[in-house]
């Protein structure tokens, strides 16, 4: 078995309710994927997953980090936050289900599509959450699989 090369790691801090900076991490990850010459379809999938996961932290959590680990054959996105957590993950995965407050919905966010979009565009998705502690989301986009 050959050992896998160390991935390129990108890490960004995300602040809850900071809508002015929301999307910067995803935008930066996208740019990096372009510089690596990843296939256009995969760049798009990574951009969507990273953006939705970043927005979830901004909308729901207190603070968190977005990390992208780029390997030669896949991009792993690990988004960790400290926040209220998700009491019922199965319910949160239902289209249109949202716990976003009204003022966030008025900004056009929190339509209950975030996790659905992540699931749709990632090849693997694992969510672990502890109420009032936080959530860890791991999504993998395999290059050339989309």
């Amino acid at each position: 078995m050959t050992t896998e090369a160390e991935p390129l790691v990108l890490e960004f801090a995300v602040q809850g309710m900071d809508f002015t900076a929301a999307g910067e991490a995803a935008s930066s990850i996208r740019k990096t994927c372009m510089k690596l010459g990843l296939p256009a379809r995969d760049v798009r999938r990574v951009a969507i997953v990273a953006y939705e996961a970043e927005l979830n932290v901004v909308i729901h959590a207190w603070k968190g980090t977005v990390r992208a680990l780029v390997f030669g054959d896949r991009v792993e996105l690990v988004v960790e936050d400290s926040g209220p957590g998700i009491p019922d993950i199965a319910q949160a995965m239902v289209e249109g289900f949202s716990t976003a407050p009204d003022h966030v919905r008025e900004m056009g966010f929190g339509a209950g599509m975030g996790l659905i979009n992540i699931q749709r565009h990632a090849d693997d998705l694992v969510i672990e959450s502890v109420v009032n502690v936080g959530t860890v989301l791991r999504a993998t986009v395999r290059l050339g699989a989309g």
Binding site: E6, L8, K35
Partner: peptide, 23 residues
């Protein structure tokens, strides 16, 4: 069609290496 000119290398693994060096 696309004009892929932003990448650091034609090979993804080598591009990752270059970007790590750049970081």
């Amino acid at each position: 069609g696309p004009r892929p000119v932003m990448q650091l290398d034609d090979d993804v693994q080598r591009a990752i290496g270059k970007l790590k060096l750049a970081e």
